[in-house]
């Protein structure tokens, strides 16, 4: 099941021809190197533009949320087995 986290994280990535690609994030003083981005999708909530990245770190799935207006990153959810 996905466990809701909703904590602010720091993200490092690169801009290429296909937009921004997150490479790693820092959560609770731990560095998470992103192995794969499995899905990316956009959503709007009124005037707020949100972009979601589903990423894999060492086989575990995380959902990052980027608020494009406030330029803030959030770790939204983490997948927990069982």
């Amino acid at each position: 099941m996905y466990q809701r986290i909703n904590e602010v994280v720091e993200v490092v990535g690169s801009y290429t021809g296909r937009g921004f690609t997150p490479k790693r994030f820092k959560w609770q003083n731990n560095i998470y190197d992103i192995d794969q981005i499995t899905l990316k999708n956009d959503a709007r909530d009124g005037g707020r533009h949100l972009r979601f990245y589903s990423v894999i770190v060492k086989g575990n799935a995380y959902r990052l949320r980027f608020d494009r207006d406030e330029e803030k990153w959030l770790l939204e959810e983490v997948w927990y087995e069982g």
Partner: peptide, 9 residues
């Protein structure tokens, strides 16, 4: 399928 694409587990 989209959920499985997102999460390989």
């Amino acid at each position: 399928t989209l959920l499985q694409q997102e999460n390989p587990a």
